[in-house]
Design a protein around this nucleic acid. Structure first.
Length: 553
RNA sequence: UGGGGGAUCGUCUAAUGGCAGGACAUCAGACUCUGACUCUGAGUAUUGGGGUUCGAAUCCCUAUUCCCCAGCCA
């Protein structure tokens, strides 16, 4: 059943067994985000896991919003999540569900729980419940209301539902065991009073179910076979199971926990990311430095690269921090196959080809993608004055420098061989212009006489180039582990001050002027770039998603 | 000093009592109209200590160490 070249993991093994034993005939999973923030790469791991398993096992995966807390949840987040999951390439067909769709059923079951003597209405305040709960090493005390009659509980719960009590006045609690070593089992809250407007049910309800009560039952209603969640819910599993077991004839899914994704040089919690956004430390949720799906997307990451990354990091129970270099590798791997090559100069240095006729223009043919002939060719204009990269010239270069120097010959990609004769400097001694000569016999960038040239440079024609803004990105944090701080310092002090470099004086080849937002390109020798949403015809803007591997010494 | 889970190359991840393997990263080389890609090669790991066994990453004992749990958040 499992694809052979796909990495297996302990969850897939469980599924294999369940299929083999006949426990399940069809696998059903779900991705259950709370719409209280934007999705990040950590969620992508979960999305790829759940949807990936459904796909590989010929099952289905639902998208379900776990919207049980109206205070934190908003439609804006619902929309962004839908968009992100879709963009990642997954399809839930008509199975878009909301926990709030089940509020009536959940309420009915709560009544059943009360009738069975397994729940009671508690008058304790939040603080009192806290005190009564005890500590991990000391058992808690039972609520004075724990032994109310079923009738009284039913009546009180009905009044809670009818809005007869203010927020916090009462809660419905499960009656389990105040001495349990598992804190989650110490009479957990099932319903709380919240006079709040819910993004979908409006003011219909003023009591809302808690996660532990709701989640397993949501899974049950959807016939989820394997409910996958992260490690911190391991302690909740006994409660997940307990709730379902109290109800008659309710299907019992299996919760399985796996380790969440961590990435070095970034932070991954919604709260921390929100702090960065609200503190203006980044430019919104889709800032290309953010590990959010929308940030990665704007940065120039492709859905395929993120899916591949999710596959490669694997799934296990051990807590781990993956190397962001693997993510970058997956992007390069994807884009190397697909991205069209273009030429752009980030830090221009003017070159005058002194023996090239003034007012002459030629066009050279260039392949769009050497990895795929079908991607065709384009024409690139060439003239007497061109820009090359400042860093491609050294006045006094070391031997291993394969680029331009006085008296050295290099190839201009697709064009000619040129030799540098002179470097012109300004009064500060800075090189402002190069005078070179070209060899007409090397037209197209090739010589028949077998002479070899050490380096090949990218370039653009001064006359034809389009000025553009290019944004270069680096890790958001300068420390592998941003939380590693000296005394008195904060994780935000580890923000990388050079994570964004804006270069407005770049020149791009003319064919690039008409690109669309999120088009991916390889700028020759520089990296993979994408057109930013800020880009206009007059002022093109590109983001560098990732540089090319650079093995020069 | 409660409960629940972990610990394998630098990083992630395999192994299900039988040769510790793969990927990324790193280094070295080949190739190259991108110092890219591709190819070849190299080094690097079972947390410690005991035990069972012909044989242990795997089973047992013990120690160490890390993570999670005291929201009317999810």
């Amino acid at each position: 059943m499992t694809d052979e070249n796909k990495q297996t993991n302990f969850i897939r093994e469980i599924i294999d067994n369940d299929l083999e034993s006949g426990k399940h005939a069809k696998i059903i999973t779900r991705f259950p985000p709370e719409p209280n923030g934007y999705l990040h790469i950590g969620h992508a791991k979960s999305i790829c896991l759940n949807f990936g398993i459904a796909k590989d096992y010929d099952g289905i995966c639902n998208l379900r919003f776990d919207d049980t807390n109206p205070i934190k949840e908003e439609d804006e987040y619902v929309n962004s999540i839908i968009e992100d999951v879709k963009w990642l390439g997954f399809d839930w067909e008509d199975r878009l569900y909301y926990a709030s769709d089940y509020f009536d059923q959940l309420y009915e079951w709560a009544i059943q729980l009360i009738k069975n003597g397994n729940a009671f209405v508690c008058d304790l305040t939040a603080d009192e419940i806290n005190e009564y709960r005890g500590t991990p090493t000391k058992p808690g005390n039972e609520s004075p209301n724990r032994n109310r009659t079923v009738e009284e509980n039913l009546e009180l719960f009905d009044k809670m539902k009818n809005g007869e009590f203010p927020n916090g006045a009462k809660v419905l609690r499960a009656k389990i065991d105040m001495a349990s070593p598992n804190m989650n089992m110490r009479d957990p809250v099932v319903y709380r009073i919240l006079h709040a407007t819910h993004h979908r049910t409006g003011s219909k309800w003023c009591i809302y179910p808690m996660y532990d009560w709701a989640h397993g039952l949501e899974d049950s209603l959807e016939n989820i076979t394997h409910s996958l969640c992260t490690l911190e819910f391991e302690d909740h599993r006994p409660l997940y199971d307990w709730f379902i077991d109290q109800l008659d004839g309710v299907y019992h899914p299996r919760q399985i926990e796996f380790a969440r994704l961590n990435l070095n040089y970034t932070v991954m919690s919604k709260r921390k990311l929100l702090e960065l956004v609200e503190g203006g430390l980044v430019n919104g949720w889709d800032d290309p430095r953010m590990p959010t799906i929308s940030g990665l997307r704007r940065r120039g990451y492709t859905p395929a690269s993120i899916r591949e990354f999710a596959d490669r990091v694997g799934v296990a129970k051990r807590e781990a921090t993956s190397d962001i270099a693997l993510l970058e590798h997956c992007l390069r791997e994807d884009l190397n196959k697909r991205a069209h090559r273009r030429m752009a100069v980030l830090e221009p240095l003017k070159v005058i080809i002194t023996n090239y006729p003034k007012d002459q223009t030629e066009e050279f043919e260039a392949v769009n993608n050497p990895e795929n002939e079908n991607d065709g060719k384009r024409m690139i204009p060439f003239s007497r004055e061109i820009y090359i990269e400042k860093s491609d010239f050294m006045e006094d270069p070391p031997k291993k420098f394969f680029r331009l120097g006085i008296g050295r010959e290099v190839r201009l990609k697709h064009a000619y061989y040129i030799t540098c004769n002179e470097a012109i400097k300004n009064e500060n001694g800075e090189i402002v212009e190069l005078h070179c000569s070209y060899d007409p016999a090397t037209k197209g960038g090739w010589s028949d006489d077998g002479r070899k040239v050490k380096g090949t440079l990218h370039w653009v024609s001064v006359e034809h180039a389009v000025q553009a803004e290019v944004r270069l990105y680096d890790n958001l944090f300068s420390k592998e582990n941003p939380y590693e701080v000296e005394d008195g310092k904060d994780w935000k002090d580890n923000l990388n001050s050079e994570s964004l470099i804006v270069n407005k004086n770049c020149y791009i080849e003319p064919s690039l002027a008409n690109s669309n937002s999120e088009d991916n390109f390889q700028f020759l020798r520089l990296g993979y770039f994408t057109t930013d949403k800020d880009s206009t015809k007059d002022k093109p803007v590109f983001n560098r998603a990732v540089s090319l591997r650079d093995r020069k010494k």
